[in-house]
Every structure is written in structure tokens, then in C-alpha cells.
Amino acid sequence: MFKRELSYLNNENNEVVKKTLEREIKVAQKIQMKLLNGPNPEVENGEISGVSIPARLIGGDYYDFYMLPNGKLRIVIGDVMGKGIPAAMLMILTRGAFRSASESTQGPGETLTAMNQAIYSDLRILGSFVTVLCADWDPNKATLTYASAGHNLPLIVCSEVEINEAPKIKGVMLGGLPNTSYQDNTLSLNDEDLVFFYTDGITEAQNPDGEMYKIDRLREALLDNYYAEVQEIEDSIVNAIDEFTESLDQKDDITMVLLKVKNGDTKVASYTSPVINS
């Protein structure tokens, strides 16, 4: 190892150094894409899909799924401060914390609490933070329990004319405060309801005039595609952003996770009166 580093430093051929770096970045990109854009899980009474498109070769956005022993699916979406390689490294740290916390915690709030405890000091030393939204989908009860660590709340599309943000819930980003805890919020979903989790790379995507895509355009695109399957909706949103930005280089990573309820029957929704789990 020492010899390798020494010969590397003595090598004055910039082209070799450049090629080595390019190769390492490509390997890092491959690792990240394999870990990130894995197969979508098959869930009972629902369809799920997710995609992350980094602004650079690798990015700091993150989503993941974790099947719990009780049949629920734990969903996480996050956005690491910054961009590129530094953000990607912290994204891997966050992924590890999520996987490990999911093994031993009951709900999303507990998961975020455990994640913050695990990575708070690392993030503080590095002067960084991560926003994370964690949610448990219960396919049998058709409920979504969620907690937020400073992340955008998901949008719930109930029909081709009705879209709402999930009820507000407090919670600071991971790496913001030590020993902080996160609360859960639960809402019931109807058959065909669509839950859209996202990162701000979508709403902050810019066109050549410097105008942002913003939440209103996103809401409109989701309403327009309400009747489609999750994969089609995902593609439509990606295309709508691309059309808006006129294929301009992305400034930020773009990530979304879509969950569509497929109960085959209609249940009474209690969307406007969520159950607060202490």
C-alpha cells in the first residue's frame, strides 16, 4: 500500500492520475447506483416504485425500502446536505444507519431517533446534516405512519382533482440536535390513493430562465397522471421536469418514491384527522 501511494505521488503524468480518478469515480457511481436503485419491493395491496437521478455522477439523495417482519413496509427518503462525492459518502452512512435502526425499532419516529443517535456526532464533526422522511405502510390496515427529520412531507393524491400534503409533523434534520426524538403521525388511505415522497431537487429544478419547477407544477403533473400505474407516473414526472428544464443540466439530485394503494375496495379515509401516536 505504501509503495503504491509513493509511486502514485511520484508519477507526474497527469493523464494517468486523471484516468485513475475517473475509474474510481465510475466504480463509486456503480456502487451507489446498485445500492440505491435496487428492485422495487412487491407489496400487498399496493404498488411501489422509486427512482433517484443524481445531478452529478454520484449524489446525496437516498431512498430505501425495508420489509418488516410484521408485514409492513418501511420506506425512507433522504437528502444529504451538499452534492457530489462528499454527499454520496454521507448517503452511505445514512443508509447503514437506517438499515440498522429498522432492525430494532417499532415505528418511523423511533427509527429516526435511533438514526440521529447513531450519526449525530459524525454529522456535527463534518458540519453536515441529512433530511429524512420515514414511513411505514401497513397493507392490511391501509395506513401510513410517518415521521420527518426536516424533510418535505409527502403529497397524497386522492383523485384527479384532489391533492394534499400529509398533515404537518415537527422534527429537525438528522445532525441538527443531539438526543432529539421524533413523533409519528398516522393516516388512513383509500383504495387508489397515491402517496408521493420526494426531494427538493424536483421542486427546485430550474429552466434556462432561472425559473423553478415548484410545488404547483408538481401537484398539477400528479393530478394529470392520477389514473396511471406508479411506473408510468414516475416516468411522467421525470419527463415533465425534463420538459420544463429544457434538458438543462440538473443542479440538484432528483428523487421520488411512489406508493399506490390497490385494495380492490374502498375504505373510509381519515386523512384530515390523523392519529397522533405518542
Binding site: M81, G82, F129, T131, G176, D200, E204
Partner: peptide, 15 residues
């Protein structure tokens, strides 16, 4: 406009 890096600078200043 402020992005996550800008917010990070504010958080670091607060600490």
C-alpha cells in the same frame, strides 16, 4: 434562494 449547503452554513454558525 437558499439550498442545503447554505442552510448547513447557518446551522454550523448556530452551533
Amino acid at each position: 434562494f437558499i439550498d442545503s449547503t447554505g442552510i448547513g452554513a447557518i446551522i454550523n454558525l448556530v452551533h
